[in-house]
Design a protein around this nucleic acid. Structure first.
Length: 495
RNA sequence: GGCGGCGUACCCAAGUGGCUAAGGGGGAGGUCUGCAAAACCUUUAUGCAGCGGUUCAAAUCCGCUCGCCGCCUCCA
């Protein structure tokens, strides 16, 4: 398995520090506002990574934190006139509700900054003792010049950054690059007692404290959005390695951004959609599929067109699943009958052989894709190749035990791959119901069945004009009719 | 200004040295159908921003140019 490591800027073989155990830590959210679709990307990407590692037999301990104390939370509390911890509680709850809908699993451990004040103070004290940090007016700063490796993750040196000139003005710091480990609290702000007086943790220190406590001083994977590389993760490395004297993290993984009109989606630009807004219009599986259709490090342009394509793709899966289920139930009823001999010459036998090859090679292809830095986009491509071949095979009207086995195996493989990506988790009927909800179909199922019945009657009388009128009427409402031998079926138009 | 990334068909998107450049959407034609839908088939990049170079061999490596984006400030 290979993983792109931000630290070395290349794909490396993945070798956990401890055989088949994987310790991974992913930066969660600061709970001061609703999550947008960019947060969803990060959560979904690392959810799939975590799932795939387990699928491959690793024993994973997955930690995802909540930053539940910080300037933004305090400001929000002031604005809303409620206590800061009420803000944190409210948005933590909202985070869970969003993630649950998106099918993002809970982490094994979900620590909060405010529950680790003791550990944070210990580390800050240790850093002062070791000469890496200093106290000024109740705040404690990390002295970047004392850590020679500073910049190794974000690939920059102090001089480069100085040239940028946009450096925080803070008289108390020895050097503008120094960052706060502990912040003295101002009047009226939340605080914890510390050796330096009343204050609260700086942003970066919590991740050091919590990852060391819940994982180890050195661990395998640390992830987050690419915007965390600097300064957050750079600072984490500095303070952690200064404190422990050991390498902090083996593999640094960062997901790319979601863009709108090519620009990064962000709170400050205001060009964002919240998860809730998007889920009003698209099913969670559509959102997951959309995100997993692109490699996790590439930017993704967020647009209706893209989401609709994702919806059509998911629909194609469920349509095929329905065919498969129908085929299997049909062969089931024919089980005791002798198999129908293959039609004419080589044609069908060739189909079967080709399909068998596709089926038998699928798992390996999927795993090879995922083994290569979690290439979900390629994995999805293989899934649709299998779907096309399955449809082709079913078109050839196969029969017999062998056919049943092949088709049944196909269904299992699709579900297996789906379970890693955590998509395809509905029944086809549930998918149709989901589409009715997100597409806001202005018709009840009963109304629809009545119209279909009326059309059936027209068709019996061969009144094609009347039948087509009804078809058209339903089509305009987003419903497609499918005439089959045993009656007329309906489905919601995807896309 | 410094550092980094990207540019693959009409659209989205895999592919980072070597079989005919995955997959999805869309378009065109066809099979099936009362007509459709779904599905399948054929077709839609002798070429991967442009120009040079390295190599037996490059979308893939190197250089330059153009265009877009990100980070350097809170940010998934």
């Amino acid at each position: 398995m290979r993983i792109y490591n931000t630290l070395t800027a290349e794909k490396e073989d993945f070798v956990p520090l401890n055989k088949d155990r994987v310790n991974m830590y992913v930066c969660g959210v600061t709970v001061y506002d609703s999550c947008h679709i960019g947060h969803a990307r990060s959560a979904i990407v690392f959810d799939v990574i975590q799932r795939y590692l387990r699928y491959r037999g690793f024993k994973v301990t997955f930690v995802r934190n909540f930053t539940d104390i910080d300037d933004k939370i305090i400001n929000r509390a002031k604005k809303e006139g409620i206590p800061w911890n009420e803000v944190a509680r409210k948005y933590t709850e909202e985070f869970y509700s969003d993630m649950d809908s998106l099918g993002v699993a809970r982490a094994d451990i979900e620590p909060k900054a405010t529950e680790h004040i003791k550990e944070i103070i210990e580390i800050v004290t240790g850093l002062i003792d070791k000469g890496y940090a200093y106290e000024r007016d109740g705040s404690v700063y990390f002295e970047v010049n004392k850590f020679p490796d500073y910049g190794k993750l974000s690939k920059r040196d102090k001089e480069d950054m100085m040239a940028g000139a946009r450096v925080e003005v803070n008289e108390r710091k020895k050097d503008p690059m120094d960052f706060a480990l502990w912040k003295a609290s101002k009047e009226g702000e939340p605080f914890w007692e510390s050796p330096w007086g009343k204050g609260r943790p700086g942003w970066h220190i919590e991740c050091t404290a919590m990852s060391i406590k819940h994982l180890a001083e050195s661990f395998d994977i640390h992830g987050g959005g690419a915007d965390l590389i600097f300064p957050h993760h750079e600072n984490e490395i500095a303070q952690s390695e200064a404190f422990t004297g050991k390498p902090f993290v083996r593999y640094w993984m960062h997901n790319g951004f979601i863009t709108i009109d090519k620009e990064k989606m962000s709170k400050s630009l205001g060009n964002f959609f919240t998860i809730k807004e998007v889920l009003e219009r698209y099913d969670p599986e559509v959102v997951r599929f959309f995100i997993l259709s692109t490699h996790y490090r590439s930017p993704i342009e967020f647009s209706d067109e893209q989401l609709k394509e994702a919806e059509v793709s998911i629909d194609r899966y469920y349509t095929t699943l329905t065919r498969i289920a129908e085929f299997l139930s049909m062969t089931h009823s024919l089980e005791n009958n002798p198999p129908i001999p293959p039609l004419e010459k080589g044609g069908k036998g060739g189909f079967e052989k080709a399909f068998e090859n596709t089926v038998n090679s699928f798992r390996e292809k999927f795993q090879t894709a995922m083994d290569d830095d979690f290439n979900t986009a390629l994995g999805v491509g293989h899934i649709f190749e299998l779907i096309r071949e399955a449809n082709k095979y079913l078109d050839s009207k196969p029969s017999g035990q062998k056919a049943k086995e092949l088709v049944s195996k196909t269904m299992e493989l699709l579900k297996e791959a789906g379970s890693v990506l955590n998509i395809f988790r509905k029944t086809p009927d549930e998918w149709q119901t989901a589409l009715m909800r997100t597409k806001k179909i202005p018709l009840t199922e009963t109304d629809m069945l009545n119209r279909i019945k009326a059309r059936e009657e027209a068709r019996q009388k061969k009144d094609w004009a009347a039948a087509d009128t009804i078809r058209k009427e339903l089509d305009e409402k987003g419903i497609i009719l499918e005439d089959k031998k045993d009656g007329t079926g309906w489905k919601i138009k995807a896309g």
